[in-house]
Amino acid sequence: MVNVTITVNGQPVAADIDERTLLLEFIRDVAGLTGTHNGCLEARCGCCSVELDGAIVKSCNVLAVQAAGRSVTTIEGLSPQRLHPAEHITTGSLAGMYQPLDMLGADAADLHPVQAAFHKCHALQCGFCTPGMVMALKNYLAENPEPTRDDIRAAIAGNLCRCTGYQHIIDAGMEAAEQLRAQADA
């Protein structure tokens, strides 16, 4: 066992953990943030993508001890929805926690532009890969604000969508880039 403190979405989270604990497990089981998904556990699918000190990583292929003392941003850190972890997730608790997106509108101020673009472009079907896709694109668009569609394809090469919704995800990436540029100009 080892004591580790990781800052998750601005909040320090400290725990005694087994050295084998993956960053993904720390985020989900210790910090209680289940938006980061466990897909393949072998650094293929990208559903567990998070930012570690501002750089994108697959949290299933990083040990929590490697992230000790560092800062992690997860999908929950992008917008003010669901800031507190749920004790037990039920349909009822979800309903209380999330404002229905329709009520917000796709350009709602409390969605991150990448999230809003996913909503507007219908860039998800089952939604399992979405948190990883959004994190990967959010991180990439900060590096390259004027991407081509091919750039977006390359940026999400490490993220798999089994609903094969890639075209709409690329649409969303382009839309988000435009919105982010407009925000930067304003």
Binding site: A55, K58, N61, A157
Partner: peptide, 9 residues
């Protein structure tokens, strides 16, 4: 090579 998240680490 590999993908962006893997290149980070």
């Amino acid at each position: 090579l590999a993908d962006r998240p893997v290149r980070t680490m």
